[in-house]
Write a protein that binds this DNA or RNA. Structure first.
Lengths: 199, 199
DNA sequence: TCGATAAACGAACATATGTTCGTTTAGCAG
DNA sequence: CTGCTAAACGAACATATGTTCGTTTATCGA
Protein backbone atom coordinates (compact mmCIF):
# COMPACT_ATOMS: atom_id res chain seq x y z
CA UNK A 1 0.00 0.00 0.00
CA UNK A 2 1.07 3.61 -0.34
CA UNK A 3 -0.54 6.94 0.34
CA UNK A 4 -4.14 6.64 1.53
CA UNK A 5 -7.00 8.44 -0.20
CA UNK A 6 -7.97 11.60 1.67
CA UNK A 7 -5.01 11.31 4.00
CA UNK A 8 -3.88 14.63 5.40
CA UNK A 9 -0.74 15.51 7.29
CA UNK A 10 -2.25 17.87 9.81
CA UNK A 11 -5.04 15.51 10.70
CA UNK A 12 -2.71 12.57 11.16
CA UNK A 13 -0.31 14.59 13.28
CA UNK A 14 -3.16 15.68 15.52
CA UNK A 15 -4.40 12.10 15.79
CA UNK A 16 -0.92 10.98 16.81
CA UNK A 17 -0.75 13.62 19.53
CA UNK A 18 -4.16 12.67 20.88
CA UNK A 19 -3.44 8.96 20.87
CA UNK A 20 -0.04 9.53 22.45
CA UNK A 21 -1.59 11.58 25.24
CA UNK A 22 -4.03 8.81 25.96
CA UNK A 23 -1.50 5.98 25.84
CA UNK A 24 1.22 7.76 27.81
CA UNK A 25 -1.34 8.75 30.42
CA UNK A 26 -2.56 5.17 30.70
CA UNK A 27 0.72 3.32 30.63
CA UNK A 28 3.57 5.78 30.96
CA UNK A 29 5.98 6.90 28.29
CA UNK A 30 8.46 4.06 28.62
CA UNK A 31 5.70 1.45 28.54
CA UNK A 32 4.06 2.91 25.44
CA UNK A 33 5.48 1.40 22.29
CA UNK A 34 5.27 2.90 18.85
CA UNK A 35 3.58 -0.08 17.27
CA UNK A 36 0.71 0.34 19.68
CA UNK A 37 0.61 4.08 19.05
CA UNK A 38 0.57 3.52 15.31
CA UNK A 39 -2.23 1.00 15.63
CA UNK A 40 -4.26 3.45 17.71
CA UNK A 41 -3.90 6.04 14.96
CA UNK A 42 -4.54 3.50 12.22
CA UNK A 43 -1.24 3.80 10.40
CA UNK A 44 1.95 1.74 10.25
CA UNK A 45 4.82 2.30 12.69
CA UNK A 46 6.99 3.59 9.90
CA UNK A 47 4.44 6.25 9.00
CA UNK A 48 4.74 7.82 12.43
CA UNK A 49 8.08 9.13 11.30
CA UNK A 50 6.46 11.34 8.69
CA UNK A 51 5.11 13.36 11.62
CA UNK A 52 7.75 13.19 14.32
CA UNK A 53 11.49 12.83 14.49
CA UNK A 54 11.87 10.46 17.45
CA UNK A 55 9.80 9.05 20.28
CA UNK A 56 11.65 11.38 22.61
CA UNK A 57 10.76 14.46 20.57
CA UNK A 58 7.12 13.44 20.57
CA UNK A 59 7.09 13.53 24.36
CA UNK A 60 8.95 16.81 24.48
CA UNK A 61 6.60 18.44 21.98
CA UNK A 62 3.58 17.38 24.00
CA UNK A 63 5.05 18.80 27.19
CA UNK A 64 6.22 22.02 25.58
CA UNK A 65 2.82 22.71 24.08
CA UNK A 66 1.16 22.10 27.43
CA UNK A 67 3.49 24.32 29.44
CA UNK A 68 3.27 27.10 26.90
CA UNK A 69 -0.52 27.05 26.99
CA UNK A 70 -0.57 26.91 30.79
CA UNK A 71 1.64 29.95 31.17
CA UNK A 72 -0.20 31.97 28.55
CA UNK A 73 -3.65 31.19 29.87
CA UNK A 74 -2.59 31.85 33.44
CA UNK A 75 -1.28 35.26 32.54
CA UNK A 76 -4.51 36.02 30.70
CA UNK A 77 -6.57 35.00 33.73
CA UNK A 78 -4.45 37.16 36.04
CA UNK A 79 -4.67 40.11 33.67
CA UNK A 80 -8.44 39.79 33.70
CA UNK A 81 -8.56 39.65 37.50
CA UNK A 82 -7.39 43.19 38.10
CA UNK A 83 -5.00 44.44 40.77
CA UNK A 84 -6.54 43.27 44.07
CA UNK A 85 -4.26 40.60 45.64
CA UNK A 86 -6.97 38.27 46.93
CA UNK A 87 -8.92 38.47 43.69
CA UNK A 88 -5.75 37.64 41.78
CA UNK A 89 -5.04 34.67 44.02
CA UNK A 90 -8.57 33.38 43.61
CA UNK A 91 -8.32 33.83 39.85
CA UNK A 92 -5.10 31.83 39.84
CA UNK A 93 -6.69 29.01 41.85
CA UNK A 94 -9.83 28.91 39.73
CA UNK A 95 -7.88 28.87 36.51
CA UNK A 96 -5.48 26.23 37.80
CA UNK A 97 -8.28 23.88 38.79
CA UNK A 98 -10.27 24.36 35.59
CA UNK A 99 -7.23 23.97 33.36
CA UNK A 100 -6.17 20.86 35.24
CA UNK A 101 -9.63 19.34 34.99
CA UNK A 102 -9.77 20.04 31.30
CA UNK A 103 -6.31 18.83 30.38
CA UNK A 104 -5.65 16.23 33.02
CA UNK A 105 -3.70 13.95 30.72
CA UNK A 106 -1.29 16.67 29.65
CA UNK A 107 -0.84 17.72 33.26
CA UNK A 108 -0.19 14.22 34.42
CA UNK A 109 2.37 13.63 31.72
CA UNK A 110 4.15 16.91 32.28
CA UNK A 111 4.39 16.13 35.99
CA UNK A 112 5.44 12.52 35.90
CA UNK A 113 7.33 11.95 32.69
CA UNK A 114 9.98 14.59 33.23
CA UNK A 115 12.39 11.81 34.06
CA UNK A 116 11.85 10.34 30.61
CA UNK A 117 13.17 13.48 28.92
CA UNK A 118 16.75 13.95 27.80
CA UNK A 119 18.50 16.33 30.20
CA UNK A 120 18.44 19.32 27.81
CA UNK A 121 14.74 18.86 27.13
CA UNK A 122 14.02 18.35 30.80
CA UNK A 123 15.83 21.55 31.64
CA UNK A 124 13.60 23.57 29.34
CA UNK A 125 10.41 22.14 30.84
CA UNK A 126 11.69 22.58 34.38
CA UNK A 127 12.40 26.23 33.71
CA UNK A 128 8.83 26.74 32.54
CA UNK A 129 7.50 24.96 35.60
CA UNK A 130 9.57 27.22 37.81
CA UNK A 131 8.08 30.19 36.00
CA UNK A 132 4.64 28.89 36.82
CA UNK A 133 5.44 28.29 40.49
CA UNK A 134 6.96 31.75 40.67
CA UNK A 135 3.65 33.30 39.70
CA UNK A 136 1.90 31.70 42.66
CA UNK A 137 4.71 32.48 45.05
CA UNK A 138 4.52 36.08 43.86
CA UNK A 139 0.79 36.22 44.48
CA UNK A 140 1.21 34.82 47.98
CA UNK A 141 3.93 37.32 48.78
CA UNK A 142 1.79 40.17 47.45
CA UNK A 143 -1.04 39.04 49.67
CA UNK A 144 1.23 38.78 52.68
CA UNK A 145 2.73 42.21 52.00
CA UNK A 146 -0.78 43.67 51.84
CA UNK A 147 -1.52 42.13 55.23
CA UNK A 148 -4.18 39.83 53.79
CA UNK A 149 -2.34 36.53 54.13
CA UNK A 150 -0.44 34.90 56.91
CA UNK A 151 2.15 32.52 55.53
CA UNK A 152 4.48 30.24 57.36
CA UNK A 153 6.65 30.11 54.27
CA UNK A 154 5.64 31.36 50.84
CA UNK A 155 7.45 28.66 48.91
CA UNK A 156 6.21 25.76 51.01
CA UNK A 157 2.71 27.17 50.96
CA UNK A 158 2.85 27.44 47.20
CA UNK A 159 4.09 23.87 46.79
CA UNK A 160 1.43 22.56 49.15
CA UNK A 161 -1.31 24.45 47.35
CA UNK A 162 -0.15 23.31 43.95
CA UNK A 163 0.02 19.71 45.12
CA UNK A 164 -3.50 19.91 46.47
CA UNK A 165 -4.93 21.71 43.45
CA UNK A 166 -3.16 19.50 40.96
CA UNK A 167 -4.23 16.40 42.84
CA UNK A 168 -7.76 16.91 41.61
CA UNK A 169 -6.83 15.67 38.16
CA UNK A 170 -5.69 12.30 39.48
CA UNK A 171 -9.22 11.30 40.41
CA UNK A 172 -11.55 13.66 38.53
CA UNK A 173 -13.98 12.02 36.13
CA UNK A 174 -15.99 14.17 33.75
CA UNK A 175 -19.02 11.96 34.40
CA UNK A 176 -18.56 12.08 38.17
CA UNK A 177 -20.70 13.45 40.95
CA UNK A 178 -19.24 16.95 41.09
CA UNK A 179 -19.24 19.68 38.49
CA UNK A 180 -16.08 21.68 37.71
CA UNK A 181 -17.58 24.83 39.29
CA UNK A 182 -18.18 22.96 42.54
CA UNK A 183 -14.66 21.62 42.54
CA UNK A 184 -13.31 25.12 42.00
CA UNK A 185 -15.35 26.40 44.95
CA UNK A 186 -14.34 23.58 47.26
CA UNK A 187 -10.67 23.84 46.41
CA UNK A 188 -10.59 27.62 46.57
CA UNK A 189 -11.84 27.46 50.11
CA UNK A 190 -9.51 24.63 51.14
CA UNK A 191 -6.54 26.47 49.68
CA UNK A 192 -7.36 29.96 50.89
CA UNK A 193 -8.31 29.13 54.44
CA UNK A 194 -4.87 27.72 55.07
CA UNK A 195 -3.18 31.03 54.31
CA UNK A 196 -5.76 33.75 55.05
CA UNK A 197 -5.01 36.12 57.89
CA UNK A 198 -7.30 35.63 60.84
CA UNK A 199 -9.07 38.27 62.98
CA UNK B 1 32.16 -18.32 38.49
CA UNK B 2 29.72 -19.83 40.95
CA UNK B 3 28.66 -19.06 44.46
CA UNK B 4 30.50 -16.09 45.93
CA UNK B 5 32.40 -16.31 49.24
CA UNK B 6 30.36 -14.89 52.10
CA UNK B 7 27.27 -14.52 49.92
CA UNK B 8 24.03 -14.61 51.84
CA UNK B 9 20.48 -14.87 50.59
CA UNK B 10 18.85 -12.44 52.97
CA UNK B 11 21.44 -9.77 52.40
CA UNK B 12 21.21 -10.06 48.64
CA UNK B 13 17.43 -9.96 48.69
CA UNK B 14 17.50 -6.81 50.78
CA UNK B 15 20.05 -5.23 48.45
CA UNK B 16 17.83 -6.03 45.49
CA UNK B 17 14.85 -4.37 47.14
CA UNK B 18 16.83 -1.27 48.01
CA UNK B 19 18.34 -0.95 44.56
CA UNK B 20 14.96 -1.56 42.93
CA UNK B 21 13.37 1.18 45.03
CA UNK B 22 16.04 3.60 43.95
CA UNK B 23 15.96 2.71 40.27
CA UNK B 24 12.18 2.56 39.94
CA UNK B 25 11.90 5.88 41.74
CA UNK B 26 14.44 7.44 39.42
CA UNK B 27 13.32 6.00 36.11
CA UNK B 28 10.00 4.30 36.54
CA UNK B 29 9.28 0.59 36.57
CA UNK B 30 9.00 0.09 32.83
CA UNK B 31 12.21 1.98 32.20
CA UNK B 32 14.20 0.03 34.78
CA UNK B 33 15.79 -3.04 33.25
CA UNK B 34 16.97 -6.04 35.13
CA UNK B 35 20.52 -5.88 33.83
CA UNK B 36 20.86 -2.45 35.38
CA UNK B 37 19.28 -3.64 38.61
CA UNK B 38 21.62 -6.61 38.76
CA UNK B 39 24.62 -4.38 38.14
CA UNK B 40 23.52 -2.07 40.95
CA UNK B 41 23.40 -5.04 43.31
CA UNK B 42 26.63 -6.47 41.99
CA UNK B 43 25.32 -9.78 40.72
CA UNK B 44 24.41 -11.17 37.34
CA UNK B 45 20.92 -10.79 35.84
CA UNK B 46 20.32 -14.51 36.17
CA UNK B 47 21.06 -14.41 39.88
CA UNK B 48 18.19 -12.04 40.49
CA UNK B 49 15.91 -14.99 39.92
CA UNK B 50 17.22 -16.72 43.02
CA UNK B 51 15.44 -13.97 44.98
CA UNK B 52 12.34 -13.09 42.99
CA UNK B 53 10.00 -14.88 40.64
CA UNK B 54 9.42 -12.16 38.01
CA UNK B 55 9.98 -8.46 37.52
CA UNK B 56 6.29 -7.95 38.07
CA UNK B 57 6.31 -9.75 41.41
CA UNK B 58 9.25 -7.64 42.55
CA UNK B 59 7.16 -4.51 42.05
CA UNK B 60 4.15 -6.02 43.71
CA UNK B 61 6.15 -7.16 46.74
CA UNK B 62 7.58 -3.68 47.18
CA UNK B 63 4.15 -2.10 47.05
CA UNK B 64 2.55 -4.65 49.32
CA UNK B 65 5.19 -4.21 51.97
CA UNK B 66 4.78 -0.46 51.85
CA UNK B 67 1.00 -0.46 52.09
CA UNK B 68 1.03 -2.97 54.90
CA UNK B 69 3.47 -0.88 56.90
CA UNK B 70 1.53 2.31 56.22
CA UNK B 71 -1.74 0.87 57.45
CA UNK B 72 -0.19 -0.72 60.53
CA UNK B 73 1.73 2.36 61.57
CA UNK B 74 -1.23 4.63 60.98
CA UNK B 75 -3.41 2.53 63.20
CA UNK B 76 -0.72 2.58 65.87
CA UNK B 77 -0.49 6.37 65.68
CA UNK B 78 -4.26 6.73 65.95
CA UNK B 79 -4.41 4.32 68.87
CA UNK B 80 -1.82 6.41 70.66
CA UNK B 81 -3.72 9.64 70.00
CA UNK B 82 -6.69 8.81 72.18
CA UNK B 83 -10.35 9.53 71.50
CA UNK B 84 -10.52 13.28 70.86
CA UNK B 85 -11.42 13.88 67.16
CA UNK B 86 -9.13 16.84 66.51
CA UNK B 87 -6.21 15.15 68.24
CA UNK B 88 -6.78 12.06 66.14
CA UNK B 89 -6.89 14.11 62.95
CA UNK B 90 -3.69 15.89 63.88
CA UNK B 91 -2.05 12.58 64.69
CA UNK B 92 -3.06 11.25 61.29
CA UNK B 93 -1.62 14.27 59.53
CA UNK B 94 1.62 14.22 61.48
CA UNK B 95 2.11 10.54 60.90
CA UNK B 96 1.27 10.84 57.23
CA UNK B 97 3.82 13.59 56.64
CA UNK B 98 6.57 11.91 58.63
CA UNK B 99 6.02 8.53 57.02
CA UNK B 100 5.97 10.11 53.58
CA UNK B 101 9.16 12.03 54.24
CA UNK B 102 10.89 8.93 55.49
CA UNK B 103 9.78 6.57 52.75
CA UNK B 104 9.31 8.90 49.84
CA UNK B 105 10.50 6.40 47.26
CA UNK B 106 8.07 3.70 48.36
CA UNK B 107 5.26 6.25 48.40
CA UNK B 108 6.08 7.53 44.98
CA UNK B 109 6.20 4.05 43.54
CA UNK B 110 2.98 2.95 45.19
CA UNK B 111 1.23 6.03 43.83
CA UNK B 112 2.52 6.10 40.29
CA UNK B 113 3.32 2.55 39.30
CA UNK B 114 -0.09 1.08 39.97
CA UNK B 115 -0.64 1.02 36.23
CA UNK B 116 2.37 -1.25 35.86
CA UNK B 117 0.77 -3.96 37.99
CA UNK B 118 -1.22 -6.86 36.62
CA UNK B 119 -4.91 -6.27 37.24
CA UNK B 120 -5.18 -8.79 40.12
CA UNK B 121 -2.14 -7.31 41.84
CA UNK B 122 -3.40 -3.78 41.23
CA UNK B 123 -6.74 -4.67 42.75
CA UNK B 124 -5.12 -5.77 45.99
CA UNK B 125 -3.11 -2.56 46.32
CA UNK B 126 -6.08 -0.38 45.41
CA UNK B 127 -8.12 -2.03 48.15
CA UNK B 128 -5.45 -1.21 50.68
CA UNK B 129 -5.29 2.37 49.46
CA UNK B 130 -9.04 2.68 49.86
CA UNK B 131 -8.67 1.39 53.39
CA UNK B 132 -6.18 4.14 54.07
CA UNK B 133 -8.37 6.85 52.57
CA UNK B 134 -11.31 5.53 54.55
CA UNK B 135 -9.45 6.19 57.78
CA UNK B 136 -9.06 9.87 56.95
CA UNK B 137 -12.61 10.20 55.68
CA UNK B 138 -13.76 8.64 58.92
CA UNK B 139 -11.75 11.08 60.98
CA UNK B 140 -13.17 14.03 59.05
CA UNK B 141 -16.70 12.76 59.51
CA UNK B 142 -16.10 12.23 63.23
CA UNK B 143 -14.88 15.80 63.50
CA UNK B 144 -17.84 17.12 61.56
CA UNK B 145 -20.27 15.12 63.68
CA UNK B 146 -18.70 16.56 66.83
CA UNK B 147 -19.21 20.06 65.40
CA UNK B 148 -15.49 20.71 65.20
CA UNK B 149 -15.11 20.65 61.43
CA UNK B 150 -16.99 22.26 58.62
CA UNK B 151 -16.65 20.20 55.46
CA UNK B 152 -17.95 20.93 52.02
CA UNK B 153 -17.60 17.24 51.24
CA UNK B 154 -15.74 14.71 53.36
CA UNK B 155 -14.45 12.67 50.45
CA UNK B 156 -13.24 15.61 48.40
CA UNK B 157 -11.68 17.16 51.48
CA UNK B 158 -9.88 13.94 52.21
CA UNK B 159 -8.56 13.61 48.66
CA UNK B 160 -7.42 17.24 48.64
CA UNK B 161 -5.67 16.84 51.99
CA UNK B 162 -3.96 13.63 50.94
CA UNK B 163 -2.79 15.21 47.69
CA UNK B 164 -1.35 18.14 49.57
CA UNK B 165 0.26 16.07 52.30
CA UNK B 166 1.64 13.50 49.90
CA UNK B 167 2.97 16.23 47.64
CA UNK B 168 5.66 16.98 50.16
CA UNK B 169 7.58 13.87 49.21
CA UNK B 170 7.94 15.01 45.61
CA UNK B 171 10.24 17.85 46.56
CA UNK B 172 11.53 17.08 50.07
CA UNK B 173 15.27 16.69 50.41
CA UNK B 174 16.74 15.39 53.66
CA UNK B 175 19.54 17.96 53.36
CA UNK B 176 17.12 20.79 52.62
CA UNK B 177 16.27 23.97 54.45
CA UNK B 178 13.38 22.63 56.52
CA UNK B 179 13.33 19.97 59.19
CA UNK B 180 10.63 17.28 59.25
CA UNK B 181 9.07 18.76 62.38
CA UNK B 182 8.70 22.12 60.68
CA UNK B 183 7.12 20.52 57.66
CA UNK B 184 4.68 18.68 59.89
CA UNK B 185 3.72 21.95 61.59
CA UNK B 186 3.30 23.87 58.34
CA UNK B 187 1.24 21.16 56.70
CA UNK B 188 -0.90 20.53 59.75
CA UNK B 189 -1.93 24.15 59.73
CA UNK B 190 -2.51 24.29 55.99
CA UNK B 191 -4.62 21.16 56.10
CA UNK B 192 -6.59 21.92 59.24
CA UNK B 193 -7.46 25.52 58.51
CA UNK B 194 -9.31 24.48 55.39
CA UNK B 195 -11.75 22.32 57.33
CA UNK B 196 -11.90 23.78 60.85
CA UNK B 197 -15.20 25.29 61.95
CA UNK B 198 -15.01 29.05 62.31
CA UNK B 199 -16.41 31.27 65.09
C1' DT C 1 -1.50 17.75 -17.52
C1' DC C 2 2.31 16.81 -15.06
C1' DG C 3 5.94 16.66 -11.94
C1' DA C 4 7.26 17.43 -7.10
C1' DT C 5 6.05 16.45 -2.67
C1' DA C 6 3.54 14.44 1.08
C1' DA C 7 2.16 10.53 3.30
C1' DA C 8 1.58 6.06 3.47
C1' DC C 9 3.42 0.93 3.34
C1' DG C 10 6.12 -3.68 4.19
C1' DA C 11 10.32 -5.40 5.52
C1' DA C 12 14.15 -5.41 7.93
C1' DC C 13 17.94 -4.04 11.25
C1' DA C 14 20.14 -3.48 15.50
C1' DT C 15 19.62 -3.55 19.93
C1' DA C 16 17.33 -4.15 24.39
C1' DT C 17 15.12 -6.99 27.60
C1' DG C 18 12.77 -10.58 30.56
C1' DT C 19 13.68 -15.07 31.45
C1' DT C 20 15.57 -19.91 31.35
C1' DC C 21 19.11 -23.44 31.52
C1' DG C 22 22.96 -26.04 32.81
C1' DT C 23 26.76 -25.60 35.67
C1' DT C 24 29.69 -24.42 39.51
C1' DT C 25 30.88 -23.94 44.26
C1' DA C 26 30.39 -22.11 49.17
C1' DG C 27 28.02 -23.08 53.32
C1' DC C 28 26.04 -25.99 56.54
C1' DA C 29 23.50 -30.07 58.65
C1' DG C 30 24.39 -34.79 59.69
C1' DC D 1 34.10 -35.60 55.97
C1' DT D 2 30.36 -35.60 52.98
C1' DG D 3 26.56 -34.64 50.53
C1' DC D 4 22.52 -31.43 49.95
C1' DT D 5 21.09 -26.95 49.11
C1' DA D 6 21.62 -22.06 48.37
C1' DA D 7 23.39 -18.78 45.54
C1' DA D 8 26.03 -17.44 42.15
C1' DC D 9 27.62 -17.52 36.94
C1' DG D 10 27.86 -17.32 31.53
C1' DA D 11 25.32 -18.15 27.64
C1' DA D 12 21.54 -18.20 25.14
C1' DC D 13 16.56 -17.70 23.68
C1' DA D 14 12.52 -15.51 22.30
C1' DT D 15 10.47 -11.54 21.84
C1' DA D 16 9.84 -6.53 21.90
C1' DT D 17 11.06 -2.17 20.26
C1' DG D 18 12.89 2.25 18.12
C1' DT D 19 14.18 3.34 13.78
C1' DT D 20 15.58 3.21 8.76
C1' DC D 21 15.04 2.13 3.91
C1' DG D 22 13.20 1.68 -0.52
C1' DT D 23 8.95 1.98 -2.65
C1' DT D 24 4.32 3.37 -3.88
C1' DT D 25 0.68 6.54 -4.83
C1' DA D 26 -2.52 10.48 -3.75
C1' DT D 27 -2.53 15.43 -3.71
C1' DC D 28 -1.72 19.88 -5.35
C1' DG D 29 0.69 23.94 -7.38
C1' DA D 30 2.36 25.49 -11.83
Amino acid sequence: MARITRSNGERTAAAIRQAALRLIHQQGFAAMNLRELAAAVGISPASLYNHMTTKQSLLFDLMLEHMTALLEQTDAALAAAGPEPLARLEAFIAHHVLYHLERKREVYIANFELRALDPPNAARIITMRHDYEARLIGLLEEGAAAGLLNLGDARISAYAMLAMLTGVCTWYRADGRLQPAELVALHTRLALEGVRRKG
